[in-house]
Design a protein around this nucleic acid. Structure first.
Lengths: 192, 192
DNA sequence: CATAACCTAACGAACGTTCGTCAGGCAAGT
DNA sequence: ACTTGCCTGACGAACGTTCGTTAGGTTATG
């Protein structure tokens, strides 16, 4: 499907150059068509962008759900650490994660409301997923402390810190070092 | 000074709309001059941008150094938690912090090298500052564990997580909740 | 079966607008 | 008198978008 090719190229450039820094001619050239032809598939730049955004959201959410469903039976240490590792791997393979991160932080202002709605929705779903798992662990007495909400927020903080490191430097050694440090302290903070 | 006004307006728009999304006419209008008059003060858009960048770096570093010098004598808990609170306050008051964060994450690609150089330099200085303090605390035996490097990286992770929350939602309650959660776990992870 | 009507995807050309930038002139402060 | 700051005017380039048109495939009609 040609429109998928267009979205794929659009994802790439939106991620690297942002919304304003990406031109339709750039995307079209990447696909091998003229920029006018994009209008056969999308109403315009905004329509294309929002379409890419929705795909990225779906991708992000499904990978979350998938991993959590697979791992929810294993012990907390293995699962929580494993998820961080998995995320690092995905971040380099799946381009939509970086796109999502960028647009969540710094959305094009004229689309702020539409983007905010999506990011909020995703965040709520992700946190609900986590909170439930932390809740079962606390009930089972395998974790030290506190309420599920606190653990969820702290853990998602660790996730964000790693993601930022991935965007910021993209230096594998640095990322590994950061992961090790953050995990060490976090795990010591929540384990018995 | 008029060039300071220009830089101030530029900072504002660069922060909100990014490099590509900001036009010189926008900046000029904000100052009350024509866009061509900007060229009386700066060589061009890039020159203005890099000038703003250097100011922001200086601001960020000096506020770091200032706080650390004042607080280095107090106990770890008070200082580390206090710094997070201070950062939240500054983030809303000092615009250059948000600017710095954005450009560190998503720089305009054609200025990547110049920006990377500055961000790297700042990061090294900040981490050196932290690591030294953690080192003295460890030597004094007031902290539980590990090497200073690990604590530094983990703590800067907490900082980043809070900053991201500030950018992401800008909801004071949400930020406070995140701070409380991250701090609780982090402190439990490093204290005796 | 043939043909007419329609749909899709792509095109070249052009639209009006905005972009960053350069050149030259005019007024004020030293 | 000379520099400095801001102005007007203009520039080529690029932007997103619209237009009319073409080629090819699908569907419906006679």
């Amino acid at each position: 499907m040609k429109s998928d090719e267009i979205k794929k190229a659009a994802l790439k450039y939106f991620t690297i150059h942002g919304y304003e820094g990406t031109s339709l001619s750039q995307i079209a050239e990447d696909v091998g068509i003229k920029k006018q032809s994009i209008y056969s598939h999308f109403k315009g730049k905004d329509d294309l962008f929002l379409s890419v955004l929705k795909d990225a959201k779906e991708m992000e959410l499904s990978s979350y759900v998938e991993y959590f469903n697979i791992m929810k039976k294993s012990d907390p240490e293995k699962m929580l650490y494993g998820f961080l590792e998995e995320m690092i791997k995905m971040f380099q393979e799946v381009e939509s994660l970086k796109f999502w991160l960028r647009m969540g932080f710094f959305p094009p202002t004229h689309l702020y409301n539409e983007i905010q709605k999506e990011t909020d929705d995703l965040q709520v779903q992700q946190e609900a997923l986590m909170e439930k798992i932390f809740g079962t662990w606390i009930s089972a007495g395998v974790l030290n402390s506190g309420d599920a909400r606190t653990l969820t927020l702290a853990y998602s903080g660790v996730i964000v810190a790693i993601m930022v490191e991935l965007v910021y430097a993209d230096n594998p050694d640095r990322v590994a070092e950061k992961l090790a440090a953050s995990w060490t302290i976090f795990w010591r903070g929540i384990s018995k």
